[in-house]
Simulated scan of single mutants.
Amino acid sequence: MDTLFREDAYARDCIATVTAVDERGIRLDRTVFYPTGGGQPGDSGALRFDGLEVRIRDTVKGDGADDIIHVPEEGQPLPAPGTAVEAVIDWERRYRHMRMHTALHLLCAVVPGSVTGGQIGADKSRLDFNVPAESLDKDAIAEAVNRLIAADSPVGTQWITDEEMAAKPELVRTMSVKPPTGSGRVRLLSVENVDLQPCGGTHVARTGEIGGIEVTKIENKGKQNRRVVIALKD
C-alpha cells in the first residue's frame, strides 16, 4: 500500500482502488488515512464512489507494516474490490491531531526525563514522564512550550538505517514504544534545534501552526510518574 500521509501530512484526499473488503474493513492500494499508532488516533472520513459515500469511523493497522484497514460505520453499502474510490479524511480533526502531536514533541523537549506513555486527542493530549513531581511547574512548562511555538521553527522528517538507529539509542525518549525496525530504515521527526526522535505520526510544517497551548493539569501516576495534560488554545 502507498502510504501518502508519510510523505505529505497535508494531503486531504486521493483516488484509490479497493483491494479487499472483509469483516475488519476496507483495504486500498493507496491512502491518505493515518492508522492508529504511536498514541495518535486513526483518521476518520469517507470513501466516495458511484454517487455513494461510505463513512469511515476509524483507521487501524492490519497484519503488515503497510497493511491499513479503513473501518466503516455499520449498515452501509461497501465498495467491491476493484472499485475506484475517492478517499477523503476529516481534515479539521486530522489537523488538530497534527498540531497536538507536534506540540507533544515540544513538551518532550521541555520536560526532562524519559517518556513512559502518551495519548493524542483533538481536544486534549498528554505525556507521562518518569520524573519527580517537584521538578514540574505547570506555568513554567506552558511558557517554555509556547516560546518554542512562537519561534516558528521548521518541522520535517528524515530517515536513518536500522543500524544507525541501533547505534544512537539516545534518540529514543519513549520507554513504552520502541521505534519500528526491520524494514531497513527508521523515520525521524525533526524540530530544528529542538527535538529529534523516531516518530511515524503526522505533524505540522512549522511550530507556529500549533498556535499556542496551555498545560491544564499535572497528575501523579506513580512514584515518579507524572502526567502532563495539554490543550490547544483555540
Rank of each mutant, 00 (worst) to 15 (best):
Y95Q: 01
Y10R: 07
G82E: 04
K233V: 13
P81R: 12
D195C: 10
H203I: 13
G201Y: 14
V60G: 01
T161W: 14
S125H: 08
H203S: 02
L107S: 01
T83V: 11
G62C: 04
A65W: 14
T207H: 07
R206Y: 12
L106H: 04
E74G: 08
E23G: 03
G200R: 03
R94E: 03
E163I: 13
E92P: 01
G45M: 07
V111H: 04
R185N: 10
P198N: 05
L104S: 02
Y10I: 05
R93E: 05
D13G: 03
R30I: 08
K178V: 10
I68Q: 00
G211S: 02
V131T: 15
P79D: 06
G51Q: 07
A144G: 01
N193V: 07
P79L: 13
G64F: 13
T31C: 05
L47K: 05
D50N: 14
G51P: 03
R96E: 07
R187N: 01
R12Q: 15
L52W: 06
K217W: 09
I68P: 02
E143R: 14
R147N: 04
D195G: 05
I15L: 14
P79G: 06
T202L: 09
K61Y: 06
F49D: 00
L28G: 03
R227A: 03
S153N: 07
E86Q: 15
S153G: 01
G208D: 03
A103W: 10
G182H: 08
A167L: 09
S114D: 07
A144I: 08
Y10A: 04
R126V: 08
D123V: 13
G184E: 03
E192D: 13
D66N: 12
V60W: 07
P154K: 11
K221I: 11
A11K: 14
G51N: 03
